[in-house]
């Protein structure tokens, strides 16, 4: 399919040109604060829709030596921020990331960047998201959610444990604070911008 132009004739409603939608992905394990993060900064209450993800089962089929794939329907939360009438930022919380070997291509394709939210008590939950963004070469930052202002490990420890490259920012934020979420998103956008300038 090719992009289509809006009709210029007819009623005012029909002549509306939609904003350019830019997508960022909010990833992380179950219960880590993805929906809270989206809700803190979205101009609408986070919406939920059903999306399909393809899961690659752990292990391979003994007969064919190919991974077994199954399609799973999952709930996906998202919100948006209108920058101006011609530009709108969408934040999509990715589902299913606590499982092994999922694929989010249906949701992530075309995203300008990702934020991987981490609970330092459960670092394992975010390995898959980190691997995914690295593999897809999508600019991303790791954001440690400071539950109750507490972070159990230093950022250096988190960086070491996740084995992220030096170019990946690791920051602390509070998913409940709009300003804190805003600043974490800015880290990702600055990274995406720096990539375009290299």
């Amino acid at each position: 399919m090719t992009p289509t132009e809006p009709l210029t004739r007819g009623t005012a409603a029909a002549a509306v040109r939609p904003p350019l939608p830019v997508k960022m992905v909010i990833a992380g394990g179950f219960g880590v604060g993805k929906t809270t993060t989206v809700g803190s900064i979205s101009e609408i209450e986070p919406l939920t829709t059903e999306a399909s993800i393809t899961e690659v089962a752990a292990g391979v089929d003994d007969l064919t030596h190919t991974p077994r794939k199954t399609t799973t329907t999952v709930a996906m939360d998202f919100g948006c921020i209108t920058i101006d009438p011609t530009l709108k930022l969408y934040l999509f919380g990715t589902p299913g990331q606590e499982r092994f070997g999922f694929m989010w291509d249906d949701i992530v394709e075309g995203a300008v960047g990702g934020l991987v939210i981490v609970d330092t008590r459960r670092l394992d939950d975010c390995y898959a998201a980190v691997d995914y963004f690295e593999h897809k070469e999508i600019p991303f930052a790791v954001a440690v959610n400071a539950f109750d202002g507490q972070v159990e490990h230093s950022l250096d420890e988190v960086r070491w444990a996740l084995d992220v490259s030096d170019g990946v920012p690791v920051v602390v934020f509070d998913a409940r604070e709009r300003g804190s979420v805003r600043d974490a998103l800015l880290v990702v956008l600055e990274l995406a911008l720096a990539r375009t300038e290299n």
Binding site: L7, P18, Y90
Partner: peptide, 13 residues
Amino acid sequence: PVETQVVTTAAGL
């Protein structure tokens, strides 16, 4: 993609 924008046309109205 999920963020694809859709708008009603005059013919749609």
